[in-house]
Amino acid sequence: MDEILAEYIRRTVLKIPRDEIKTVLQTWGFLSEAQLQTVNFHQIKENISQDVVRLCEENSADIKQAAVLDIIYNHIYSDKRVWSVYQMSKTGEETEFFDLTDFKKKFKRRLRSALKNVTINFREYEDNSIWIRIAWGTPYKKPNQYKSSYVVYHSQTPYVFISASVLKSTLPLLCQALVVASNYRDIREMELRSHSLNSLKDIVFKRYSQNFQTYYPRPLQERNVAPESADLRIVQENRHEKERIERVNRKVFGDGPQPKLEFAQYKLETMFKSDPKMGVLDKKEPFRCLVKFSSPHLLESLKSLAPAGMADAPLSPLLTCIPQKARNYFKIREKKGIFPGSFVSP
């Protein structure tokens, strides 16, 4: 086992929270239970990592095993990466039998024909997903294990989740290999990205709950706290407005929890419209803006905007269409020839 590999294993171990190192190593299964018994998992991580490397040396680990450990780490901590959704398409509607061995073989062959120095590893999970790890080199350099790409593919679906390497130039090659190996014709990015791989799956597999329950009003708190002196009609009106917002919100977002996304981005190239009386900016060119929304749980926070009085109800379709359209990156231009206030996104 060379030094570079030892260091790679050591750093992978260091990334794992201390309390979970043992479990991850057990999942890995490369070190025997007896070997693991010899490691003191209560010492500082630095020492644990060195002990693990020593044991790996005993078992003469190679890059294949190290890559599997990295896959296991990324599978458990998939939220650490940003995932993009890609959709593949084919001409006919015919469904072919998916053969995993054939897929792997074609995928490897395709990549290796373009680039000799690549490390490719696969691991299958119970949910029918295939995790692929690719570390990229150059014709003259060995693969850089620290800048690997990850692909999660569900063979019964046309969707692929890619967490690309920082080595940007590798992406077209990766997409090509995927299309060839899975017998599709084309692949396109859906402009849907998140840290939460599961939420992306929920969105594209339409797994998030959209059960629009029938509306049964709950008594609102305000009913009891309204001061007696207040104008009853105003109280009544406020209550009606609150109920309307709740109703509209439920219609748009549904009752269930929202899928987890952390951001949405809009590139606006629309006209700037203002009150002619104000006499400001009367330009025929679009007003160029880039708007980014970010939140630990974007859709939940958008859902709470109107009830908090920060937004109109219903909220703009540009925001509420995110789960249905399965995208969170948009380019918005003015719809031509139609009344103002409507936008298109390509």
Partner: peptide, 26 residues
Amino acid sequence: VPHLPQPLDISYAIHPEDAKALWDTV
């Protein structure tokens, strides 16, 4: 955006030429 169950940040970036054109008319 304050007081939401989940915090929300909004970044609103405007092309410098367009922002200046607007300011110059204001």
